[in-house]
Write a protein that binds this DNA or RNA. Structure first.
Lengths: 158, 158
DNA sequence: TTTCTTGCAAACGATTTGCACTTTG
DNA sequence: CAAAGTGCAAATCGTTTGCAAGAAA
């Protein structure tokens, strides 16, 4: 019921704390962008985020969205990972990882805690972990089937 | 002693098998690029790989290196991951993951088998895993120290 | 007021693409 | 020879940057 609400407050709290700690400013643009990000649950690109902001009826330049996203990542609000066409983001905590087919390039998110548990147990010297991004590469069943009959197109497209 | 040799043969074998299976051709360029990749143990960029090829006294166009790298990834010879400035590669098997500082952008490779063990135990429906790429984001001790005194520069530079 | 931010537009740079020419199978 | 691959150069496109004007603190 209040799950979403809590996540929102958590992100907002992280932002406020981060801005205060690093002496950065609280701006309406950053709040709007954060709200827009919250409406995009799955992995989204900067452009999609900018569109979501626009859909809220707010005009924010693309450069500012890039700026905000950079800040959110540093603040531990967003995780960044990379698709074949540039960076993708998602709200933390994620508890998922991605499967990428080496043949057709399709990606799939998989819910799984086991890797985060390993990470939690792991200890790095001189490094404080905030989140991770795990991508598993392989071949999806559709492509495996095709590969048996005919030559496959290996060019990875999105 | 023969560890390197075996790795070479393994990669070559993967290439041959992949070319045959998908009906692609064996070209001197691809062999040269594979040899050059073998000389670059750590994560390398396409440009660095092209330079390594040139250093071997062979002239291969950048586009061909891009082409070959794509093919090597699909063949399971190279792992691809992303630094702040584009794609990086390394010869498989890797058994390592990467730490990235969210503040200064520096990356560090960490040798670790625990994640590969989890992956090996894990089973995906309709997907055959080949390799994974794990990146842990956080803050390095140097940046954590700096953050306590003054405002930190959050712009991630390489 | 003094910085930090924003917006805009130009600059960048890694990657991709189109096409004529070569090479492999 | 037919299909694939290569080289070259131009085109793309996500991202960055410089700078003047606008807001936080």
């Amino acid at each position: 019921m209040t799950g979403e609400k809590h996540k929102q407050d958590f992100a907002l709290q992280k932002l406020t704390e981060y801005l205060a700690r690093t002496g950065r400013r609280n701006t309406p643009e950053r709040l709007e962008i954060l709200e827009a990000a919250r409406s995009l649950v799955t992995g989204f690109s900067v452009e999609e985020l900018a569109n979501a902001v626009a859909a809220r009826g707010v005009r924010v330049s693309l450069a500012t969205v890039y700026n905000a996203v950079e800040l959110f990542v540093a603040a531990g609000i967003l995780a960044r990972y990379f698709g074949s066409r540039g960076a993708l983001f998602e709200i933390l905590p994620a508890n998922r990882h991605h499967l990428v087919c080496l043949s057709c390039g399709k990606t799939k998110a998989v819910k799984d805690q086991s890797f985060s548990e390993v990470l939690r147990a792991r200890h790095y010297s001189a490094f404080t972990a905030s989140y991770f991004e795990m991508t598993v590469y392989g071949v999806c069943s559709a492509c495996a089937r095709k590969a048996k009959k005919t030559n496959i197109n290996t060019r990875i497209k999105k």
